[in-house]
């Protein structure tokens, strides 16, 4: 049994009276894609912030690759990376300049070679010398993903990686993530509102509501347990508190 790559233990985050995350615990194994699902305000982004060491927990702790992210994030940050709609890349710098800077920050040995490979993998060639601020939403997402992959991370944390993308580009990104995970045996944690995306990509889904984990299972098993046809229906059941999985369906799923 290998140690979990990401482990949260009774993790909480309070902002004054408001409780963003309320004592959650989970462990994520290596070489897996895990989805973090929940409505707005469920605590997904705060949880991701604590995993990346950007937000200090009020109580509990989270470790990544064995490092406590509140106290020793720099032990492992070079082996991780992150993409989120809450952050951006400098707009005036070209794609190549941005990737050069981040390649150097992450200690990539052959930055030029790495950029050339990323340009090929993510089809950046056409706009690699264009300022990042002058790209379309789809191009920006591909560049953000290239930045997130510049150091070939073992742990990749993605917050809504395909938000605001057209279906074709979103599908293309998902395909790339699947290939990356298989190629590198990487651990990917993915927060998304796109149920189709989660169903296709994730081995496991952690469902959050009001800062708590309300369910945690493989997408197919969740669908069976809730007696639904799609993960979106399960999500709506959980979000609206409409029904809980019956014991019979739980046993059925377990068998």
């Amino acid at each position: 049994m290998t140690a979990p790559v990401i482990k949260a233990e009774r993790l909480s985050k309070h902002y004054g009276e408001a409780i963003a995350v309320d004592g959650i615990s989970f462990a994520i194994a290596s070489d897996s894609i895990t989805g973090l699902l929940g409505g707005n305000g469920a605590g997904k982004t705060t949880t991701i912030g604590m995993i990346m060491g950007l937000v200090a927990p009020t109580a509990g702790r989270v470790t990544v690759l064995g490092a406590d992210m509140a106290h020793e994030p720099h032990r492992v940050l070079h082996r991780m990376n992150f993409e989120s709609p809450h952050v951006d890349l400098p707009h005036r710098l070209t794609v190549r300049q941005n990737l050069t800077v981040f390649g150097m920050l992450y200690g990539v040995a052959d930055v030029e070679g790495r950029i050339a490979r990323l340009a090929g993998d993510l089809d950046l060639g056409e706009f690699i010398d264009r300022p990042a601020g002058k790209l379309s939403a789809g191009q920006k997402t591909r560049v953000a993903l290239a930045k997130a992959l510049v150091n070939e991370p073992e742990v990749l944390v993605l917050d809504e990686p395909t938000a605001s993308l057209d279906p074709d580009t979103a599908d293309w990104i998902r395909g790339h993530l699947e290939r990356y995970r298989k190629g590198k045996q990487a651990t990917i944690l993915l927060a998304s509102h796109n149920m189709g995306e989660v169903e296709r990509l994730c081995d496991r889904v952690i469902m959050m509501k009001r800062g708590c984990i309300v369910d945690d299972d493989a997408p197919a098993r969740l669908i069976v347990r809730y007696g639904r046809h799609t993960l979106e229906e399960v999500f709506l059941d959980v979000a609206r508190g409409r029904r809980k999985p019956s014991l019979a369906t739980q046993e059925e799923a377990a068998s």
Partner: peptide
Amino acid sequence: LANLMISP
């Protein structure tokens, strides 16, 4: 800033 803070 967040990109820098989660970098090494």
